[in-house]
Design a protein around this nucleic acid. Structure first.
Lengths: 164, 164
DNA sequence: ACTTTATTTTGGAATAATTGTAAATTTCCT
DNA sequence: AGGAAATTTACAATTATTCCAAAATAAAGT
C-alpha cells in the first residue's frame, strides 16, 4: 500500500533491507555475511547447496568463508528460518521456503522441485505433535525420480555435468 | 510346513542359505561377502550404516573391505533389494525392508524407527507413477524428532555418545 | 563519538565418509 | 582342473563438513 515501504522491501537484485528484516524477524542479529546470504536465498528460489551460495556471493564479497555459510545455515535452521534438506547424498540443500511442502529430487539433474504435501495437512506439519509416543518436530516428504524437464531432455542428449 | 526347509531357512545366527536365496531372488550373483552382508541385514532389523555392517562382520571375516560393503549396498539398491536412506546428514543408513513405510529419525540417539506411511498407500508407493509430469520412482517419508525411548531418557541423563 | 566487551567471521588445517584404481582373488562354465 | 569374466581387496584420493584460534566486527555503555 505504502510506496516507501514497498520500495524498501521490494524483491530484485540488492534488497538488503528485506533480508535484514527477515533476520530480525527470526531473532538473529544482523551482520554483513548474514544479510548477503539471506538476500541470496530470498532472490533465488532454488534449493542451493552451501557451495552454490558461497560461490555466488564470493565475487562481490571475497572475504566470505565457506565456514560462515555453514555456520549461518545451521543457525538459521535452528531459528526456523530455513530447512536443511538431506535428500542428495552428496551434499546439503537449503530450503528458505519454510511452509510445509514436499520435494521431487531428480536423479538426472540433481535439482529439487517443490510439490504439495500428500496426506498431511501443511498446518499439521507446521507444529510439533506426538505419534506413537514419539515427539515429531519436522515432517519430510520427498520423491525420487526424473523431473519433467529431464524426461524430455532424455531423448535429446545425455546430461554431461554431474553437478547442477 | 516342511522341517528340512524351515530348518535351512530359519532366522537366527548363521543363515547363509536364506541370504543366498534372497540374493538370487533379486538377480545378483552369490559371493561370500554378499552372503555375509545380506545375512547381517536379514538378522539385524536396524537401519545400519556401512560402518556398522563392516565392523560387525570384520571379526569373523577379516579380509572384508569397506569398499565392498559400499559397492554391495549400491548394487543391492539398484536391484531393489535395499533402500538407502539419506536422513542422517552424517552417513547413509541401509534399510533392508523394502515394503514402503515411513521413518522416525531421532535427533538424540540418531536411530531410525519404522512407522506406517501417511497419506500414500503402500501399494501406490511400490510402483513408479507420474505426478505433475514428473516420473516418481521412490516415495520417501520421514519425521525428525525425539523417539519414545529418548523422551523418557531425557529426564535421566544426557546422551554421551554422538554415534549410536 | 569512543572504549570496552561479547559476538561473529575468517582461513587454514583436520576429520571422516565415500569413491577410484589396479592388482589379486574368486566365481562360473566347460 | 583350466581359463575368462566378474568381484574383491587394500590403499590412495577426493570431497563435504567441522574444528580452531586469531582477527574483525557488532553491541552496549559512557
Amino acid at each position: 500500500m505504502n510506496n516507501l515501504t514497498s520500495r524498501s522491501t521490494a524483491a530484485g537484485q540488492g534488497c538488503r533491507a528485506a533480508a535484514a528484516d527477515r533476520l530480525r524477524h527470526f531473532g538473529v542479529s544482523v551482520t554483513r555475511p548474514r544479510v548477503a546470504i539471506m538476500e541470496y536465498l530470498m532472490e533465488h528460489h532454488v534449493h542451493p547447496t552451501v557451495e552454490q551460495v558461497y560461490s555466488a556471493l564470493s565475487p562481490e564479497y571475497p572475504s566470505l568463508s565457506r565456514t560462515t555459510v555453514y555456520n549461518t545455515m545451521k543457525m538459521l535452521a535452528e531459528h526456523g528460518a530455513v530447512t536443511l534438506l538431506t535428500i542428495d547424498d552428496r551434499n546439503l540443500n537449503i530450503d528458505e521456503n519454510t511452509t510445509p511442502h514436499a520435494h521431487l529430487y531428480c536423479t538426472r539433474c540433481h535439482r529439487i522441485h517443490d510439490l504439495p504435501l500428500q496426506g498431511v495437512s501443511p498446518l499439521q506439519a507446521s507444529y510439533a505433535f506426538t505419534l506413537d509416543g514419539h515427539l515429531i518436530q519436522q515432517v519430510h516428504q520427498y520423491y525420487k525420480g526424473v523431473c519433467r524437464e529431464c524426461q524430455t531432455d532424455l531423448n535429446k542428449e545425455p546430461l554431461l555435468t554431474n553437478k547442477q
